[in-house]
Design a protein around this nucleic acid. Structure first.
Lengths: 135, 135
DNA sequence: TTGAAATTGAAAACCGATTTCATTTGACCG
DNA sequence: CGGTCAAATGAAATCGGTTTTCAATTTCAA
């Protein structure tokens, strides 16, 4: 266990969910600017390999890393502000397991992503639309 | 409507689901090798923009394009043979809509991916394991 | 303490996605 | 029919995140 590794692991768990390599790298640099980007990347991969996190891919070009929590959860991804919100998914996983069983498929992981528009972005859009009309 | 565009649209719908840009490009080149890769890419994007397909991201580095079908469906992704299988998802989307509603989230799209091991890969692994033991 | 194995940092390589730009083409209007 | 102009194309360059390379350093067990 090198000091870099310890620092990276700590920083990862201090940060919230959905961490990117760049974010973690920035965080680690605050403590020790000498740590290399590739070291951060490799240790993030390691965290996944030992089962403490998993990669999340939203198709926006960057890989995020999610702590693996006791509760399976899905993601609400706002297409406008890009914010990621989690929702609990207990009842849904049962259904998914059932679906997989029909194909004799051994489930390792489940990813559910709902994309759309969050409340605050919709409100903002409504306001902007109104302003637009009155001008 | 240019001949390239028509050819690309046709080819996309002739190919099965989960098409990559490279696959479509190859397919189009069979008919007309003069068509450029970027044209294929741009038209694939266009197909998405007009609502005939959507991007699928499995985190393996390449973007796939799925025809939008009447039925919402999820994906079974075999971690070993990389094969993608679809499963019908009517009852599940109801639950997901419900979950989104609790966050006052306006749903645009839903993606469900189950990763794991398909039947045939598991069978093969069993066979290999047995062979290993008897040697 | 010592040597093998693991880890690190900097830089380069990689690779799919996307953009640039000069050129061609299609659609529309008179 | 021309003429024109916006849209589309093809080749090549660029972009940006990911991953690898490699020499130097560090860890750790014996």
């Amino acid at each position: 266990m090198t000091p870099q590794r310890e620092m990276i692991f700590r920083a990862f768990f201090e940060l919230g969910e959905h961490v990117t390599v760049a974010e973690l790298y920035r965080k680690v640099c605050e403590k020790n600017p000498a740590v290399g980007y590739s070291t951060v990347w490799r240790n993030l991969k390691l965290i996944c390999k030992v089962g403490l996190a998993e990669e999340v891919n939203l198709g926006d070009g960057v890989t995020r890393y999610d702590r693996i929590t006791r509760q399976p959860h899905g993601h609400l991804y706002c297409l406008q502000c890009k914010k990621l919100t989690e929702f609990e998914m207990n009842s849904i996983t049962d259904l998914l397991d059932l679906a997989a069983k029909q194909y004799d498929f051994a489930v390792e992981g489940v990813k559910v992503e709902i994309s759309g528009y969050c409340r605050s972005c919709r409100k903002m859009n409504e306001r902007l639309a109104k302003d637009g009309r009155t001008n």
